[in-house]
Simulated scan of single mutants.
Amino acid sequence: MKKIIALTTLALAAVAVQAKDIVDTAVAAGDFKTLATALDKAGLVQTLKGKGPYTVFAPTDAAFAKLPKADLDALLADKAKLAAVLTYHVVPGNVMAKDVKAGKVKTVEGSELTVSTRGSGVMVNDAKVVKTDIVADNGVIHVIDSVVLPRQ
């Protein structure tokens, strides 16, 4: 009986110290419910739970709310377009805020984001980076205030 209790305690301790992937980190932050729903609908949850590393420019729930409701509903209903929009927010590698440089950066979607510095802030296309360096075990999240859309 003591062996079983000891093994159970060890197993629970291992789970408690396990690092979180990008998806779990975003969900735990609490301000990415729409993003989590969109990742699920696009079939990208397992990808962002994968090895990585990934840098994700993550729009908050408020950022998604800036989209007209009809446009957001249509996007959530179109798995291929949704996947393209979401992977446009992801850059391969682990890019911390101190390593960000102005210029074009290729996304997982295949096209480029434009990163610029304006005053004291960083912009990704027309979205402002409002929080940086949320570290996950398979990459990093930078929070943005708008959804960025790939050029069609």
Results as ranks from 00 to 15, higher is better:
L86A: 02
I4L: 10
I134V: 14
D21V: 01
V56Q: 01
K81N: 11
I144R: 00
A14S: 07
R118A: 14
D61N: 15
K98F: 11
T60K: 03
L39T: 02
A42H: 01
V45K: 04
L75H: 05
V85H: 01
T60D: 05
K49N: 03
T47V: 13
I134R: 10
V124D: 02
A136S: 12
V17F: 15
G139P: 00
E112A: 15
A29R: 07
K51E: 15
A83I: 06
I134T: 14
L67S: 04
P59C: 09
M96W: 03
G121V: 14
A65H: 05
K49L: 09
L67G: 01
K33I: 13
G50I: 02
D21R: 00
I144G: 00
G119E: 09
L82T: 03
K81R: 14
K69D: 15
K131N: 14
I5S: 09
D24G: 15
L48D: 00
S111A: 13
I134A: 10
A63C: 12
V148Y: 05
L149P: 07
Q46R: 10
K2I: 10
T55H: 08
A97I: 09
K49R: 13
S146Q: 14
M1N: 13
E109T: 06
V115G: 08
G119C: 04
G110D: 07
V90P: 00
D40I: 12
F64P: 00
V115N: 12
V27A: 13
A19V: 10
K66A: 12
Q152N: 12
K69P: 05
K128P: 11
S120H: 12
L39R: 01
V115W: 11
D133G: 08
